[in-house]
Amino acid sequence: MVKSKKIVCRCEDVTEEDILHAIEEGFSDLESLKRYTGISTGPCQGKSCMLHVIRILSMATRKDVNEIGITTQRPPVNPVPLYILAGEKDES
């Protein structure tokens, strides 16, 4: 059976319904919405979900995407193991 649930953020398992609910609760700016729902805080750091979230937020609030803006992309670009940052060659 195909479920009607639309997953927007796969890392954190957040659905479109979750996002719309959060916007209704008043988390209607992108920064607050990100932190309330957890979208874009998983391993992909928003690379697969952020644009969808902006589209949903734009439709729900009738604000232009330019007005909504985008959250700060935090380093590193991809997840990096601590042993590499510590300058070690092999994981023990």
């Binding site: 935090r74 380093p75 193991p81 940052l85 300058g87």
Partner: peptide, 27 residues
């Protein structure tokens, strides 16, 4: 990057179990 390196160097000595754990983001 200086912060990432300083944290990683010390924490992996203090708790070697964390060596393979990946950093997702810094702020």
């Amino acid at each position: 990057l200086e912060f990432l390196e300083a944290f990683a160097s010390r924490v992996t000595k203090l708790m070697p179990k964390l060596k393979g754990v990946k950093v997702l983001r810094q702020w």
